[in-house]
Simulated scan of single mutants.
Amino acid sequence: MSDREALRIEFLKAAGLADAARDPLPGDASTRRYERLTTTDGRRFMLMDQAASAESPPADPAWTPERRKAEGWNATARLSAGRIEAFAAVAAHLKSLGLSAPEIVAVDAVAGLAVLEDFGDDLFARVIEDGVAEEPLYLAAVEALATLHSVPAPEVLTGAAGDWPLLAYDETALQGGADLFVEWMPKFDPALSFDEAAVVAWIAAWAPVVARGAAGATVMAHRDYHAENLIRLGGEGATMVGMIDFQDAVRAHPSWDLHSLLQDARRDVPPELEAKALDHYFSLRPHVDRAEFMQDYAGLAALNEARILGIFARLIVRDGKPRYRNFMPRMWAHLNANLQKPGLETVRAWFETHVPEGSRK
C-alpha cells in the first residue's frame, strides 16, 4: 500500500466513510483524481484527491511577474495548483449567490483530500448526446453566469478549508497563455518556426487584447466553463447548472466564461445557439455596452483559442496524449473566425505572415 493510499484510508475513516465502496473515475489532463464513494445505505459522495506537492506552487498575491515566471506555470497563469482550499472557497462563494456547487462534506487541505456532494453523471455534453435539448441547458448556463456577474468579485474568498485569494487574470497570465502557442506549436507542426522577431511581433499584436482583458477583470470567472464541467441537476434556470472543476477561478473579464461555453473545444455549439445565448446574456445584463463587450469577447476568445492550441500541442508532443489532436480543427475554426472581427487586424496579419494556411485547420 502506498503512503498516499494509507492517507486516503485514514481520511475516509475520520469522515465516517471507511466502509464506503470506492470506484475511481477516469482521469483528465490534470494531476487530480476522483473516486465515487457509495455507502452501505446507498448514499453517494465524491472523493477529491489532489496532493499539494504534485504541482508547482500557486502564485502568492505579492509576487512580481518575474517571480511568478521563475516559480513555474501555475504562478505565471495564476492557477490554483489544484489546492483543495481553493475549491472549497470558490464553492462557498458560488453557493452564497444561490448557484449550485457541491457541498464540502469533509476536508483536509494539508493532505489535499476532500469529500464532496455527488452531483451525478449528467454532464451537459453527455445528456445532449443522449437526446436532451441543448438550448435550455445553454440558456440556463448563461443565467448562472449572469448571476455570478451581478456582484463584484471579492479579492478574498472564504470556505470550509480557509481563505483563498481570488487573483486577477492579469497581463502576465493572459500573455503567458497566448505564448503557449509560439512555444509548442512548432514542436507539433514541422511547418512552423518562429524566430525572435516573430515572437516580439506576436507579443505586440496581442498587447491591446491583453490590456483590455486585464482592465475588464471585474467578475469571478470559473475559467473552465463548458459542457464537460456542467452537470444537469433538478429544477430549472441557473440552479439546475451544477458546477464542478472551478478551483482555478480568477477575477476576469465577464466574457471569459461565455466564450469558453459557446466556443467549446470539445463539442460544436451551433452559431445560432451562440447568438441566442449571447442575446439572453445581454437581456439579463441590459446595462452592459454590447459593442464594447463583443469586441473583448472576440479578442479574448481568439487569445484563449491560441492558448488552447498550444496546450493541445503540449499534451500531444510532451505528454503523449494524441487524442487532443481531434479537438484542434474545431479550435482553428473558432480562431480563424474571430480573427476576422474588428480590432484583431494586427493579430490576423501575424497569422497570415507566420502560419501557412495549411497549418491553420
Rank of each mutant, 00 (worst) to 15 (best):
E66G: 13
A291R: 14
Y297W: 13
I308C: 02
I9W: 10
G234F: 05
W202K: 04
P286L: 00
Y281E: 02
E117R: 06
Q263E: 15
Q247N: 08
L37P: 07
V182N: 04
L233P: 01
D130W: 12
A21N: 10
E143S: 15
A215P: 06
E345V: 08
R4N: 09
F351E: 03
M243V: 10
Q263S: 10
D319E: 14
G131S: 11
A106V: 09
R8W: 15
D170K: 02
A214W: 05
M48E: 01
T346N: 13
V199L: 14
S53G: 12
A133C: 01
A114E: 03
S260V: 05
E55H: 00
F188R: 15
T39G: 08
A18H: 13
T239R: 14
E236F: 09
L79H: 10
D23R: 12
G27L: 14
F181S: 01
D41N: 13
E143H: 05
L157V: 07
R68N: 07
D3V: 07
G343Q: 05
V355H: 03
E55V: 00
W350C: 02
H287T: 14
I9N: 07
W256R: 13
R8T: 06
A227M: 02
R360Q: 08
L230Q: 04
A173N: 04
A6R: 15
A140R: 06
G213T: 09
E272W: 03
L174Q: 12
A91Q: 01
P190L: 06
N338W: 07
G213A: 10
M331F: 08
G27Q: 11
M328H: 10
A111E: 13
V241G: 05
R223L: 11
Y297P: 08
I308H: 07
L303A: 11
R83D: 00
I231L: 15
D60W: 03
V107P: 04
R232H: 04
A161T: 03
L273D: 02
A144W: 00
D122C: 09
V182I: 14
R285M: 12
P65S: 06
H259G: 06
R348N: 15
L339E: 00
I311D: 01
P286M: 02
V241R: 01
S150A: 15
D130L: 14
A301I: 00
A88R: 00
G234C: 05
L262N: 00
M294P: 02
E272I: 09
A238L: 06
V142N: 07
